[in-house]
């Protein structure tokens, strides 16, 4: 924003360097102390609610342990992982999850970009209406969205078959159509978020570049590819990363619509089913660790592979 009027972090940062070595001024020292006093509790709680559980999960994943049979708890090294990785159920769930992630993120990127363009260019009389409208799916509970789509397509109450004249076609009777509805619900609910991120990116594309390209006779498409998109690459990448990680964790829509039937299980749902429904703590923990590792892998690929600079995208530095 108004970076010219306030150099927020830069000014104090140079301060300790200019001071003689080892002689932090009282002011700098008390600032450090205050900094950790203020940020410490939030930091500690974040660690407590994530680092501790994942370590615990890893520990429990090394045991053959079923809650209904606590006496037969035994340490089995990595055999739970071996069981999972050699079972087609895991690979099926992973395939479904990756499929959902790729499809929803791709559709959302295109749709979200179109929405962002509309909001960016829209005449002032429609802009607030559009912005309010797209925030509504964002604010709707995922479970409610899942119910809306499920009731719309299912055989007892669905209006879709009536409208399309499909009679008793069962959308949830087969893997692909069921997954398509799950993706629709996911896309409907989360496209607004991605479009807002892209809109913020669009706003950063310098208008002069657009004008210059226009003067040089570039078509609308050329300007989109050569000017707009390269200049908002950071925003696109951040939006993609966050949506991909979010989509990979898909659970609510699947739970409500199919409960994982007809091979529509995602990895999160599989882990839930093992732990909460079957009380297989060992296997469930191993699955949790694997889901976590997948998420880490996606994040690393994005950050290293596509060079997403989250720090600069987050306004740090």
């Amino acid at each position: 924003m108004s970076t010219t009027t306030m150099p927020p972090t830069k000014a104090p940062k140079t301060e300790p360097k200019s001071a003689p070595k080892g002689a932090l001024s009282d002011r700098a020292r008390s600032e450090r102390r205050l900094g950790w006093m203020l940020a410490g509790p939030a930091f500690a709680i974040m660690l407590l609610v994530t680092a501790y559980p994942i370590v615990q999960a890893f520990y429990e994943s090394l045991f053959d342990y079923r809650l209904t049979d606590p006496d037969n708890r035994s340490f089995t090294w990595f055999s739970n992982y071996a069981v999972i990785l050699t079972d087609s159920i895991w690979w099926q769930a992973l395939g479904v999850t990756v499929g959902i992630t790729v499809v929803t993120v791709a559709v959302e990127l295109v749709l979200g970009f179109a929405l962002a363009m509309v909001m960016h260019k829209a005449i002032t009389s429609v802009r607030p209406v559009v912005r309010t409208a797209i925030l509504i799916p964002y604010a709707i509970i995922t479970v409610v969205s899942a119910f809306a789509w499920w009731y719309g397509f299912n055989l007892t109450s669905g209006f879709v078959n009536t409208w399309l004249g499909l009679g008793d076609y069962d959308w949830f009777g087969d893997t692909l159509p069921a997954l398509a509805i799950i993706c629709l619900s996911e896309i409907w609910k989360t496209t607004p978020f991605i479009s807002l991120l892209l809109l913020a990116g669009l706003a950063q594309v310098p208008e002069v570049l657009q004008e210059a390209a226009k003067v040089d006779g570039a078509t609308w498409l050329q300007r989109l590819w050569k000017v707009t998109i390269p200049n908002m690459k950071a925003a696109i990448m951040v939006a993609l990363l966050f949506r991909a990680l979010d989509a990979f964790r898909i659970f609510d829509n699947i739970f409500i619509m199919t409960r994982g039937n007809n091979n529509t299980e995602s990895v999160s749902f599989l882990a839930y089913r093992q732990t909460i429904s079957r009380l297989e703590i060992g296997l469930g923990s191993a699955l949790s660790v694997l889901v976590f590792l997948c998420v880490v892998l996606i994040a690393v690929v994005f950050i290293k592979g596509f060079k997403v600079d989250l720090a600069s995208a987050r306004g740090e530095k």
Partner: peptide, 9 residues
């Protein structure tokens, strides 16, 4: 962080 990885433990 995937919620399911926190849920299990």
């Amino acid at each position: 962080f995937p919620a399911i990885s926190i849920v299990t433990p």
